[in-house]
Design a protein around this nucleic acid. Structure first.
Lengths: 345, 345
DNA sequence: GCCCGCTGGTTAAACGTTTACCCAAATCGA
DNA sequence: TCGATTTGGGTAAACGTTTAACCAGCGGGC
């Protein structure tokens, strides 16, 4: 039902109807007319066409699109929630809201295109936050092509003229490894993330840098790849143990793999931290609940989301086109699994 | 930059420009003209106005609004993620996407109104899912007034003509309590949720029903209120223990309170399940990781989101107005904290 | 008798697109 | 040479609103 239809039924002009349904210029329409129109609108379940409204009022889209590949590890619940909370808060400061778009990465490229393109995030949003994408993700290319402002979160794209927000994964990993070195460990195993992940790459680099600093040669036998999943962490730990060189410490590129590795160690009869010290990365909520509590590198996830949305809104409002690249500091949270607590006591 | 501007600069009509930027009717424009237009559009960073496009193409809004009060307990991460996953999947089946709206419940009512009203979810969306609202939440009233199709998730609104999807909290709680009764317990404590929560009310009712069934009189000394938070669960347990009547079992209205209560028990030197058997509600991810693993009532959260979005899309597509009220079954997951495992062995 | 202001409207332009329909010039087949 | 077809466009209506500008009629003050 449209304004025009109501107008015809009520025998008035669309202008009058518009005034009534919007409740403006009250003095310009009599109570009788008003009630008649209201009644027709109600019984016809009139709802204004939002497109038409914002077309004429020139209200810019006040939506920020949040694009997350369906099976990104970001969908790990806590990460997801925190980042959204941050983005929502920052967006709210500018009267914007967040729309969620979840393309399925396994879907054909055309479907992917549709989610973002025609009628998707890119059309409806004033800007886009890309979360949990991989390097060379099609979404990134697509955003660039469409000229929409966007910011890539937690995926250090090399390109210097795209906005990005990321944790300093490298220095975080370096700090974690240094911590283990300081505790006297020299045979420190490393369980890494998937190939395509920039985070995984940087965390490996931090590990390597810290070893090099300490003058320790990297031992390939102590390194295994994972997939940021618990089961993979478990397998990786088993593989390392099977190689015969026993590590005295482990740094895992994320917490859930660290947890999996701890299970593998337990199964082999090795105690944490007595036989093997363990440090993770992320600081998932579970980390403080396990036994022993996991020492890990805390990521400021909320801030990540918040900062990303701030950069985006700033760019949208200013219309500027030059990129901001933010790097947030991580923080090493020392709990029990690294053995430092006991060492102090 | 608009089509008209491009047309002027290129010295052609808007129709031609439209054809070029949309890449339709290729044969109707020469390569020279096409390139000229494309170049102008690119350098001017032309982006089509989505409102105008969908106004003229009559594309209905393909967005479902997901409204969650900022500080709802739904923001507990796993709940949030699962429900969204379900909703996203169902929406995707109909080519729709999910937009997130997070009004701050503590904000003044006018701000709340804005989030949902003008320019908010209600304007942009074809329908709304209300998650984590309380009984009599202003959002519910507002949705009803605006005539937009909506479905209330996990909050059993009494009104029979609003769509709702919910877990059968009552029978879930009943089953949990029965389980403890079957294990021989008669002094079963209960830690409840907040006043305003329909879930909390139903879970209490289930507990009471099971007791009544077994011919056991409810002992007020064994009941304490909480707030669905760990700290509250801990306090509630302490209060109950301080009253002098020692329970042999506890049913908590949600998992995190159960976890808090377990900490309180541990502090008092009581063992779980040996001295006090514990059952929770929700099946949060942490439940299977704690020691002892928590027996709990599993909620099909993903299905909740999925079902809600299905109901909504069905109503949007059909244009029908009669309400669907779905009730999903819960499932008791028996782990270690109730002592049943050992009883069997 | 005239000007003024109020009440309760109407008219029409504008927002940025899409697309059905029209049209002139060039080319071509016979 | 002439009609038909192709090439490369242009014109204008339509989508559903909002809102500035205009207007008729009426009552009142002087």
């Amino acid at each position: 039902m449209t304004l025009r239809e109501i107008a015809q039924m009520a025998g008035v002009s669309v202008a009058t109807v518009s005034r009534v349904v919007n409740d403006v210029d009250r003095h310009k329409v009599s109570d009788a007319t008003r009630n008649r129109i209201l009644e027709i609108a109600r019984s016809g379940r009139y709802r204004p066409n939002p497109q038409a409204v914002s077309l004429v009022t020139r209200r810019p889209p006040n939506t920020l699109g949040l694009v997350i590949p369906y099976n990104s590890h970001v969908f790990e619940s806590f990460y997801f929630t925190e980042i959204i909370r941050g983005a929502v808060d920052a967006a709210a400061d500018h009267g914007m809201s967040i729309a969620l778009f979840v393309p399925n990465r396994d879907a054909p490229a055309s479907a992917y295109h549709d989610t973002l393109g025609k009628g998707g995030a890119l059309a409806a949003a004033a800007g886009v936050l890309l979360i949990g994408t991989r390097v060379n993700d099609p979404a990134i290319r697509q955003c660039r092509e469409s000229k929409i402002p966007f910011v890539v979160v937690s995926n250090s794209v090399p390109d210097p003229d795209v906005n990005s927000v990321d944790c300093d994964n490298r220095s975080g990993a370096q700090e974690a490894t240094r911590h283990l070195l300081r505790l006297g460990h020299t045979r420190i195993a490393f369980i890494g993330g998937p190939e395509g992940s920039a985070n995984a790459r940087d965390r490996l680099a931090g590990y390597q840098t810290a070893l090099a600093e300490a003058g320790i040669f990297e031992d390939p036998a102590l390194i295994a790849g994972g997939q940021f999943e618990e089961q993979r962490g478990r397998n990786a730990m088993q593989r390392i143990l099977a190689r015969g060189v026993r590590p005295t410490a482990l740094f895992a590129a994320n917490d859930v793999m660290a947890l999996g590795a701890m299970k593998a160690l337990k199964r082999e009869g090795l105690r944490v931290p007595d036989d093997v010290a363990v440090v993770g990365f992320d600081d998932v909520p579970l980390a403080q609940h396990v036994e022993p509590a996991l020492t890990t590198v805390h990521q400021p996830i909320y801030q990540l989301g918040r900062r990303a949305a701030e950069i985006l809104t700033a760019q949208i409002i200013s219309g500027s086109t030059d990129a901001t690249r933010a790097m947030l500091r991580t923080r090493l949270v020392i709990r029990e699994s690294c053995g430092a607590r006991r060492g102090e006591a």
